[in-house]
């Protein structure tokens, strides 16, 4: 009986201390983690429209592909371009890409960094390389498709699935943008 009690007490003490210390660590690190996520989203918006001084969120009904849209504005409040956060499905799950589109519909920039994708290292993961991302610049419409699919984008060697995921994501986002852009300027 005494032994059982001792065991119970020891176990309870360990559980209590463990839970308490985890609570402390959690409350100390969670704000930093949330802050990191916020900062990295802002940085990516600035990366795709470096000239913009502010980004105003535009209210949209998010779709499977298009998650958020922001209007990038310069000092005078003129819209330079629109930032869209899109999530095409790649080979290894969702790719979190941030793209910017000029008001006239041409693609300005595409940002994907190492943390935004889980493609195979060395193969699909090369979608983060600047040479691939920059091939979308200034294009619109069907030109955003891969060459194999009748567009103008070179697929990454031996990573067709990941390349196609990004390019069809871009095409889908572009289609969505053209359809909805009228409602942005309210």
């Amino acid at each position: 009986m005494k032994d059982t009690l001792k065991m119970g007490v020891t176990l309870a003490i360990f559980c209590g201390v463990a839970a308490a210390s985890l609570q402390v660590v959690y409350s100390l690190t969670q704000p930093i983690i949330d802050e990191n996520v916020r900062i990295s989203a802002i940085k990516k918006r600035q990366e795709v429209i470096p000239e913009a001084k502010s980004f105003d969120p535009i209210e949209i009904e998010s779709t499977k592909l298009v998650k958020n849209v922001f209007a990038g504005k310069d000092e005078d409040g003129n819209t330079i371009g629109y930032v869209m956060e899109i999530t095409p499905r790649g080979f290894g799950g969702e790719i979190k890409a941030t793209i910017s589109v000029l008001p006239d519909g041409n693609i300005m920039n595409l940002a994907i960094n190492k943390l935004d994708q889980q493609e195979t290292p060395g193969l699909g993961a090369r979608i983060v390389n600047p040479s691939f991302r920059e091939s979308f610049k200034g294009k619109s419409g069907d030109a955003l498709k891969l060459k194999k699919d009748g567009g103008e984008i070179d697929a990454i060697t031996s990573a067709t699935i990941s390349s196609r995921a990004v390019s069809s994501g871009m095409k889908g986002a572009w289609d969505w943008f053209m359809e909805n852009r009228a409602s942005f300027n309210k």
């Binding site: 499977k64 499905r89 290894g92 799950g93 969702e94 889980q118």
Partner: peptide
């Protein structure tokens, strides 16, 4: 790599 939208 997996999500609910894939179909069982």
């Amino acid at each position: 790599m997996i999500d609910n939208g894939m179909g069982w």
